[in-house]
Design a protein around this nucleic acid. Structure first.
Lengths: 182, 182, 182, 182
DNA sequence: AATGAATGAGCCTTCATTCAT
DNA sequence: GATGAATGAAGGCTCATTCAT
């Protein structure tokens, strides 16, 4: 039974990620239907809709953090930093929800999500520090504004539904502002 | 009655601007209550909730456009451009709704709102062109990505609830990317 | 001003007759619009929607009564009776409202409408009595069932949206039942 | 749960039959209250008020059809026909709704109700044909006008709120028109 | 543990009716 | 006297959440 339950939980979260990513106002029933379980099962795993939302948010934040951690070991910290930045913004463009997850990372209500946000920001902070140390990013840029830029670029790409070329040109502008002045 | 009605209409729009600015999912009743009118009065002026939303959106877009047009006559196009950019982002920071208005400017459903969005983008485009002609903004930056940057910065500032100093430092980074390379 | 008011009243009643004839659930506003007056004017003339409905009903009943009275003087009472019966049913077929007026004639709430119903039934009763006296309608048929038949035929024609030929054949059946047995 | 749900559904339909029979414009809430369930339960079983109305209509039509089918096997087709006619009209007299169901049987919107109407008319047509074959009903009467007569008599009885004696005398007149001329 | 049914609060919208010009 | 604006009380319908199987 444990395995079954765990399986259901995963299916529900995947469905929720999908559904809420497309339309944030979707109903819990939509999630249940897509997950192929009864609605009561959803509420058994997540007593509140908010709980479900937070679980999804947490998962997303952790995924982003993991991406950062993977790149953290890279030999070229500058490339790693810009690569991460680009990836996050690119995916935001196609997944409305990631951008929102990023902004919610700060104000998130639940403890778990807040913790995930902290972890993600920390990992990104590590990437930034390394890139600065390596001279790829200007040293006077502090974390808060760089992080705000990441959020902003993500949300801008999402909201404007940019085509990839425009998105890349936008990032080029942002990166020019971030790079060490020669 | 004409005067009274016009007055009410204005009060309703102000209330809607306020309420929807705080929580986009607010009910029409909330708007009515804040405006101090009965709910039927709101529906008399705006037959549909969508109509009300669009009227608010249109108003916001027009206000931003007007700001752009005011600055268009400025003697110093570079300053005018950056000043406008800063103002829009600053206000977004405190008014969630402006950022959303900016992003909705593209995909807005209603004809009126779409037209307002067009007007606003045009005015901003004028500011950008002048600034580029004056050599204040790099010539290879095209409108779409600069506009995306404006939206992104606004949304980023809003979502992250930045304090003014951080916001200014974020804008400094963005502006450094936009400025003509020396 | 008296003339103006009377004119408006007539226009409102005509509009109401029209509108309610088509869709019984129509709003008072629809009536006002069709009449070309403000809604408050309608309520000035008819303090309640029920009042308006009753006035329309009364008018219709009076019209039917007048038709009966016109035919009452006819030289051939049998023809007059069947002619009247046919006319009422035919018009019901195309004007939903007449059939309803006829059925409402009994239970109508307002004194005025009730009086109009009484008058109409009396006139129809006169037609029936004369036709029976002339030997055209069987003598054992009493008013209540003949009147019920008039209502029924009208409503049946209306509800079933009969084409004229079927309607006539239906009436032929009814009339065969009403005629004096030879 | 299946049993409970089926039970509730039946209770809701019974309540709807009752409520709409008395006042066709009744609210869904009235139905729910009479059925002793929450309003959402009504909407769970019938997603739209129209759906509920149609379900009730269908049920009524099917009941009438069943009555016709029962009588179809009778040894005396003439009696069977007139018996059916009388029964339908008698019940209409006390149940406004049946008469309306009958007229709606032609134009009903939903496929299910339309099908039920078809079935009912067919069964009634069988009764008529048999009665004609047996010489109890005049051979020149065609189905459409006889059916219109059934509807009309039902609606007339309902609308006029006839007492049983008058209703029977009205039917006697109708039947005299339908019987084979001797 | 999983399910589908039930529930009431809430939302958008309409309408008869009343005010103020 | 005529008008358009304002109003609150429904009404249809949805949704997060709770029960009972």
């Amino acid at each position: 039974m444990r395995a079954d339950a765990r399986d259901n939980r995963a299916r529900i979260m995947a469905a929720a990620d999908n559904v809420f990513g497309r339309s944030p106002g979707a109903s819990t029933d939509d999630v249940a239907k897509l997950a192929g379980v009864g609605i009561a099962t959803v509420f058994r795993h997540f007593p509140t809709k908010t709980d479900l939302l937070e679980a999804v948010l947490t998962l997303r934040l952790e995924r982003i953090r993991d991406r950062a951690l993977e790149l953290a070991g890279s030999a070229d910290p500058g490339t790693a930093f810009f690569e991460f930045f680009t990836q996050v913004v690119s995916e935001s463009a196609s997944k409305l929800a990631i951008a929102e997850a990023l902004s919610a990372a700060g104000a998130a209500a639940g403890e778990e999500a807040r913790e995930a946000g902290r972890g993600m920001r920390e990992a990104f902070g590590g990437l930034l520090a390394a890139a600065q140390k390596a001279g790829a990013v200007r040293a006077d840029a502090q974390f808060p504004e760089v992080y705000a830029l990441l959020i902003g670029a993500s949300r801008g790409a999402t909201a404007a539904e940019l085509d990839p070329e425009t998105r890349d040109r936008m990032l080029a502008l942002v990166f020019d502002g971030l790079k060490t002045l020669s």
